[in-house]
Design a protein around this nucleic acid. Structure first.
Length: 558
RNA sequence: UGCCGGGUCGUCUAAUGGCAGGACAGCGGCCUUUGACGCCGUAUGUAGAGGUUCGAGUCCUCUCCCGGCAGCCA
């Protein structure tokens, strides 16, 4: 990390520094406040890393709070998946797991205070009338005829709303602010609406539920939050956030907005993601192609790589679309250090070493991880019949191709240098196998030969190999900003080749012992993990997390 | 076009009136029993026009462009 990165602070840290300096707040206390109505995605991860990261950095605290004010959309299932995802990312809220619904009683009391101050009233306008009276951004709204009910009447009506005497839509509680404000959020915003629904935590205790604006700031206040960090679309809500707190005269956190994460070649909207799931364009929320944390976990992303990525994209107020290449860089950077190497042939081509004895088997040393000596070595079997990658042989080699070709030599990783003597084809002209010879003096590590070859390729012993299915993933969309087209639906940009299933892969025997959660590098091809859902002991399924950087692919394209 | 916010390399992000820097991506090279990793090098940017100043990405004025706001969603 450069001096620059170490010392430079983002704008939120500068605000916090200032607040600490002036004594506005004495400690940093943040919160991550998801609504339990869907699965977390990489965009949420940025917010999680920001909030928990700030708390860590300033030696403060970060709460987890479920913003569950709308029983029609929220479910227990989501609470559990969100908790699992945040834990997986490696953050800890200790005993500070809260729900906005924990504060429903307090919120009700606060509402009473505002009614008594003449700052809130019960409105009887219909849904449509409220919309009409609110006006438009460019023209002022008008006041409800019920705006000046007496405090007593408001108190009575509000209590009866709470007691379930009215139907949904009959009444709402509104803050009395300014119907002509240029900020729409200040045109007498609704604080409570009637919903005769069962809440996932409070059951049927309530039939009035607070709106986001009424619940959020007060919940922050109750929890003693210092800095309430949210995304840009809440910027226009800040005056209202402040208004409620000022009228109530309670602890006043500072709301700060930042730009949400966007990534190219994918989408971040919950609604659109849901559309992909429900339309079966993907196989569930945890499809490895999804930008959900559950999908990324299943794909083989490490939590560290996501946290590093969140650090690298930074925090600012301008709308932006980050390059998925940076995410993949963070992934490879982490995996390179930790993933054990294995040999695996994805698209097998049989070779026979004609001068190698029929029944001989040698167990050769293979380094588990050149980046980490402690990872040690393992033995891999070598025999007369092997598989190599189809792409590592060219009958008429490209001018810069330095792998196997007729009459050419190449090194087999950890083994011998071999030479292609003969290409055997079937009646249709398809290559069936290669007959090769090996040079016994070139055994890996023996030092008995000075022979150098330009290429080294991976292989597995045919007899000892393990079969597996391997799933290769490509980006889900073919364009950088699939949601950015005003004419076309984002689904028109789905990449038809986002999933490729290979059924005849040959793995070195060690991989039959692979465990879910282990990260592997299949040498020269990429990083892989066992699929946590579909892999079985006798039917191995691996997911390719990400390919290795492939300079050869670039050269060969030219 | 009412209010709010925002425009710095291709992308993301620094600069706090004083050498426009970093990372990723790109390109060129070195190294290599992974065409990986690593290392070295290299090109590319302050939306525009005025002004203040010894000096402006930063301050002022105007223009242009982008985003958000009219749920009893969050």
């Amino acid at each position: 990390m450069s001096e620059n990165e170490k010392n430079s602070k983002n704008f939120i840290e500068e605000i916090i520094d200032e607040d600490l300096k002036t004594g506005k707040y004495s400690t940093v206390h943040t919160r991550f406040p998801p609504e339990p109505n869907g699965y977390l995605h990489i965009g949420h991860a940025k917010s999680i890393c920001l909030n928990f990261g700030l708390a860590e950095k300033y030696n403060g605290k970060c709460n987890l709070r479920f913003d569950d004010t709308n029983p029609s959309k929220e479910e227990e299932e989501y609470v559990n998946s969100i908790i699992e995802d945040i834990k997986w990312l490696g953050f800890d809220w200790q005993e500070r797991l809260f729900f906005t619904s924990d504060y429903f009683d307090q919120l009700y009391e606060y509402a009473l205070i505002l009614i008594k101050k003449g700052k809130a009233y019960v409105d009887s306008l219909t849904y449509e009338e409220i919309k009409e009276y609110r006006g438009k951004p460019i023209e002022p709204g008008k006041e409800s005829p019920f705006r000046n009910r007496s405090i007593e009447e408001n108190l009575d009506l509000f209590e009866r709303m709470k007691n379930g005497e009215f139907a949904e839509g009959d009444y709402v509680l509104r803050a009395k602010i300014d119907m002509s404000s240029p900020n729409m959020n200040l045109r007498d915003p609704i604080m409570y609406r009637i919903k005769h629904e069962t809440h996932h935590r409070t059951g049927n205790k309530w039939c009035i539920y607070p709106m986001y604006d009424w619940a959020h700031g007060q919940s922050d206040s109750i929890e003693g939050i210092s800095h309430s960090i949210c995304t840009l679309e809440f910027e226009n809500h800040r005056p209202l956030y402040n208004w409620f707190l000022d009228e109530l005269g309670i602890h006043h956190p500072r709301q700060i907005e930042f730009a949400r994460l966007n990534l190219n070649y994918t989408i971040m909207s919950k609604r659109k993601l849901l559309e992909l799931v429900e339309g079966k364009y993907v196989n569930g929320w945890d499809d490895p192609r999804m930008p959900t944390l559950s999908g990324m976990r299943r794909r083989g992303y490490t939590p560290e790589s996501i946290r590093n990525f969140a650090d690298k994209v930074g925090v600012a107020k301008r709308d932006s679309i980050s390059d998925v290449a940076l995410l993949e860089f963070s992934l490879r950077e982490d995996l390179n250090k930790r993933a054990e190497r294995r040999l695996a042939v994805l698209r097998p081509l049989k070779i026979v070493i004609s001068n190698y004895p029929e029944n001989k088997v040698e167990y050769l040393d293979a380094v588990n991880n050149p980046e980490n000596e402690k990872a040690g070595k393992r033995k891999i079997p070598f025999s007369r019949e092997l598989y190599i990658e189809q792409g590592d042989f060219q009958e008429e080699p490209h001018k810069k191709f330095y792998r196997l070709a007729p009459g050419r030599e190449v090194r087999l990783r950890f083994a011998y240098i071999i030479k292609c003597e003969e290409v055997v084809k079937n009646s249709e002209g398809i290559i069936e196998k290669l007959i090769c010879s090996y040079d016994p003096d070139t055994k890996s590590g023996s030092g008995t030969s000075n022979k150098k070859v330009k290429g080294t390729i991976h292989w597995v012993s045919a007899e000892h190999s393990v079969n597996a299915e391997v799933r290769l993933y490509d980006r889900l969309f073919t364009v950088e900003n699939p949601a950015g087209d005003k004419e076309k639906d984002f689904k028109e940009f789905l990449n038809p080749k986002s999933l490729e299933i290979l059924n005849n892969c040959k793995l070195e025997p060690e991989l039959s012992e692979a465990k879910i959660g282990q990260y592997f590098q299949f040498e020269r091809t990429g990083y892989f993990v066992l699929d946590s859902k579909d892999s079985k002991k006798d039917n191995l399924v691996f997911n390719r997390t990400v390919s290795l950087r492939d300079t050869w692919a670039k050269i060969s394209r030219k």
